[in-house]
């Protein structure tokens, strides 16, 4: 029996490794954004007074608790090389996962002081409440004039207030918080992947082989697992561990105190930009 199983596992193992390797290779690389901020308002250019930032943070935190909408503002002095304002806003929005997974009810305000440019980027779920024209008007009428005079704190506060005003009635906040991870679990995904099914059949086969032998000559004194099934069990456990590590739902999302934490939302490129 064992001599019959050994060539089999020696043959299967390379195939399994190839399958694992190939499925790993399909993960695609993306242009990276800076890590998601812990606060709603981040000023990397150092143009907004700290008390204003603190006030905006608590306002936006309260706003998220009331409406579920996440409004995030980022002030930088320049864009990374090779990106445009719209591209960078899209990358930040996508990577920071602003708004809930279900509704994508988020807004990103990106101010680039060096280029004198500003963009309001809407998530999919707020394109109705905040159409491109509304974003453009908010920029033109409330932000640009104050930015022009150098008063970034006031301009940003006014812009955020206008965005809050436009989006406040759009969603009811559900009690579960903004994080909505769906029902797919890494374990379930793994079980129904080719590799998972493969391993299940492999283990069943091994057990069937042992039972077949047991009927003929009685239980041997070994009692423990044969090398083949031990290897299979090891692979299953290792595989599950890897799947769990790859799952991204482990982060605490939604109800995490007063700071910002992305809920899984995405943007389709809506919004408007302007300059002063």
């Amino acid at each position: 029996m064992i001599s019959a199983m050994f060539p089999l596992s020696r043959f299967l193992l390379p195939i399994m490794l190839v399958v694992v390797g190939v499925s790993g290779m399909t993960l695609r690389a993306e242009i990276s954004a800076p890590p998601a901020p812990r606060q709603f308002v981040t000023d990397e250019a150092g143009v907004i007074p700290a008390p204003v930032i603190a006030r905006l943070n608590s306002t936006l935190s309260r706003f998220e608790k009331q409406t579920g909408n996440q409004i995030v503002a980022m002030v930088v002095s320049s864009l990374p090389g090779g990106t445009t304002l719209a591209d960078y806003a899209q990358i930040l929005y996508h990577d920071w996962r602003i708004g809930s997974k279900k509704d994508s009810n988020g807004v990103l305000i990106l101010v680039v002081t060096g280029d004198r440019k500003v963009r309001i980027q809407t998530g999919y779920g707020l394109e109705g409440a905040l159409p491109d024209v509304a974003c453009s008007r908010i920029i033109r009428e409330t932000m640009e004039p104050t930015f022009r005079s150098g008063n970034y704190g006031e301009g940003l506060s006014a812009g955020i207030a206008a965005v809050m005003q436009a989006t406040k009635g759009e969603y009811k906040r559900d009690n579960k918080g903004t994080g909505h991870q769906g029902t797919r679990t890494p374990f379930k995904d793994f079980l129904f992947s080719p590799l998972g099914l493969f391993l299940i059949v492999f283990v069943v086969l091994l057990l069937a082989g042992r039972n077949g032998r047991g009927n003929g000559c009685g239980q041997g004194p070994d009692g423990g697992m044969g090398p083949g099934s031990a290897a299979a069990a090891g692979l299953i456990i290792g595989g599950l561990g890897a799947m769990a590590a790859r799952g991204e739902g482990n982060r605490d999302e939604g109800d995490s105190g007063d700071g910002f934490s992305g809920g899984g939302g995405d943007s389709g490129g809506g919004g408007a930009d302007g300059g002063w």
């Binding site: 491109d132 024209v133 809506g270 919004g271 408007a272």
Partner: peptide, 15 residues
């Protein structure tokens, strides 16, 4: 307004 809509739409197309 139309210009803003057009720009937003071009951006959406790219995305």
């Amino acid at each position: 307004d139309l210009q803003a809509q057009l720009e937003g739409t071009e951006n959406r197309i790219a995305v």
